[in-house]
Simulated scan of single mutants.
Amino acid sequence: MSNVTLQQVRGYLTTQQWSLVSTPDAFIEVWRCQGEKGGELLLPTEQAIDKDFLLNESLRKLASIKDSVVSEIIREVRELTENLVSIRVAHRDVNDGSIPLEDGIALNANAKELISAAANAALERRPLYQGRPPALVSALLQSARLGQTTHGSYVIHVFCKDPPQNDQPMDFARVTTRVLGSALTGLKSALEKYEESGNTILFEEALTRGASANLCDAIAKFSGKDRARTVEISLSADAVDQLAPSPRTIIEFPPSHQPHLRVAAEYFRQTYTLLNETIIGVVERLDRRAEQDAGVVRVATTLSNGVQRSVSVQLGINEYPGAIHAHENKQLVRVSGNVIVTPRTASMVEPTGFRIYGNFELFE
């Protein structure tokens, strides 16, 4: 069996500059390509009783015309008519085309997580996806197919297509593939910039392009238990009904990105550190022991990444009285330092430059 349909073969021929020139009867089609020597091909129609046998014969003829083999033609047909995601891991321990069993299992399992993260992002951008996925995402995962592995270090292929009964107005598989490309490109750019600056705020741009903690986790686990392998993800949206095939997108994550992927995942899980952060806000709570002159204040503010939090700040004996005055008079305060954020808390480490703003001073 060819594992491709007549519709897919027709779509493939169209992208390769073949054209349908005649239909002698209800059971056969004649296709021709001026650019190929002997470029005439007979295709069965859906009405042909032995269409599967005839389709295989057509593929053999096409392989002969293109000086190729049937398996390669089928691979090309699927690449151009389905949404293909290929995941390649490279390291000397997989150069022979094999991979440790445990890592191979993880590679296949996290391929599903990668597609799931992109499909969720196609519906709604979020830093973390939890719980039961939407019905459209579940249907896409159920219809996705794992292709045969190929040589080249170690490579697996995932073919994404919409389920047969899909009634959505959009080609969700194609949209998911393109969102995945956007998310991977945005994440790689953010990782490279973070490597230079150490500023986690850079991951916000990747979030808007579809990156998430789920995506980061999947890529990290592709690299193996020791996180030593280079991960290369290539993808292409199907080319059917397009004027030209979509260019293949290739994104590579070297082992040096592994520590930064963990930081990005923690950031998306709302566990991160904002370096050299300056906050401005209202003192909403004071907390100190009776026998102490210093204490902790909580400042309601909006962080530089747009998140609204109440930040705990430890003030010394010289600053705390000013915080009391600001609290009683509802004045704004300003303080700088590194802010550690978790899902439940936000606190500033080694605060400096605490000051109180007057009624109009902030706008000067």
Score class of each variant (00 low, 15 high):
residue 1 M to N: 10
residue 5 T to C: 09
residue 8 Q to R: 09
residue 9 V to G: 08
residue 12 Y to E: 06
residue 13 L to S: 07
residue 15 T to G: 01
residue 16 Q to F: 00
residue 21 V to N: 05
residue 24 P to D: 08
residue 29 E to G: 03
residue 31 W to H: 08
residue 32 R to G: 00
residue 35 G to F: 07
residue 39 G to K: 07
residue 47 Q to W: 11
residue 48 A to N: 08
residue 50 D to H: 11
residue 51 K to F: 14
residue 52 D to N: 15
residue 54 L to E: 14
residue 59 L to Q: 05
residue 59 L to H: 05
residue 60 R to H: 04
residue 68 S to Q: 03
residue 69 V to R: 07
residue 74 I to H: 01
residue 76 E to V: 00
residue 76 E to T: 01
residue 79 E to N: 08
residue 79 E to S: 04
residue 80 L to N: 06
residue 80 L to Q: 08
residue 83 N to K: 01
residue 83 N to Q: 04
residue 84 L to R: 13
residue 84 L to C: 11
residue 84 L to F: 02
residue 87 I to Y: 07
residue 90 A to F: 10
residue 91 H to W: 04
residue 92 R to N: 14
residue 95 N to S: 15
residue 96 D to C: 10
residue 97 G to C: 08
residue 101 L to T: 15
residue 101 L to W: 13
residue 103 D to V: 10
residue 105 I to T: 12
residue 107 L to N: 07
residue 111 A to P: 02
residue 115 I to D: 03
residue 116 S to C: 02
residue 122 A to H: 05
residue 130 Q to V: 15
residue 130 Q to I: 10
residue 135 A to W: 01
residue 136 L to P: 01
residue 142 Q to S: 13
residue 143 S to I: 00
residue 145 R to I: 11
residue 150 T to Y: 08
residue 151 H to E: 15
residue 157 H to R: 14
residue 158 V to G: 03
residue 167 D to V: 02
residue 168 Q to M: 02
residue 168 Q to V: 00
residue 169 P to V: 10
residue 170 M to H: 07
residue 172 F to D: 00
residue 173 A to Y: 00
residue 173 A to M: 02
residue 175 V to T: 05
residue 175 V to K: 01
residue 176 T to F: 00
residue 180 L to E: 01
residue 183 A to M: 05
residue 183 A to I: 05
residue 186 G to Q: 04
residue 193 K to I: 04
residue 196 E to S: 13
residue 196 E to T: 10
residue 201 I to H: 04
residue 205 E to S: 14
residue 209 R to T: 04
residue 214 N to K: 09
residue 215 L to F: 11
residue 216 C to Y: 12
residue 224 G to T: 05
residue 225 K to G: 06
residue 226 D to C: 01
residue 227 R to A: 15
residue 231 V to T: 13
residue 237 A to C: 06
residue 239 A to P: 08
residue 243 L to N: 00
residue 243 L to V: 00
residue 244 A to M: 01
residue 245 P to Q: 02
residue 246 S to H: 00
residue 248 R to F: 00
residue 251 I to R: 03
residue 254 P to W: 09
residue 254 P to M: 08
residue 258 Q to E: 06
residue 260 H to C: 00
residue 266 E to P: 00
residue 267 Y to P: 00
residue 267 Y to T: 12
residue 268 F to E: 05
residue 269 R to L: 08
residue 270 Q to T: 13
residue 277 E to N: 13
residue 279 I to L: 15
residue 280 I to N: 15
residue 286 L to G: 12
residue 288 R to F: 09
residue 289 R to K: 14
residue 291 E to Y: 05
residue 293 D to F: 11
residue 298 R to D: 09
residue 298 R to E: 15
residue 298 R to P: 03
residue 300 A to I: 07
residue 301 T to C: 15
residue 302 T to M: 15
residue 303 L to W: 12
residue 303 L to S: 14
residue 308 Q to Y: 09
residue 310 S to I: 10
residue 314 Q to T: 13
residue 320 Y to K: 01
residue 327 H to K: 13
residue 335 V to Q: 06
residue 339 V to F: 07
residue 339 V to N: 09
residue 340 I to T: 09
residue 341 V to W: 03
residue 344 R to V: 11
residue 349 V to Y: 11
residue 353 G to T: 10
residue 355 R to L: 15
residue 358 G to M: 06
residue 359 N to A: 13
residue 361 E to W: 03
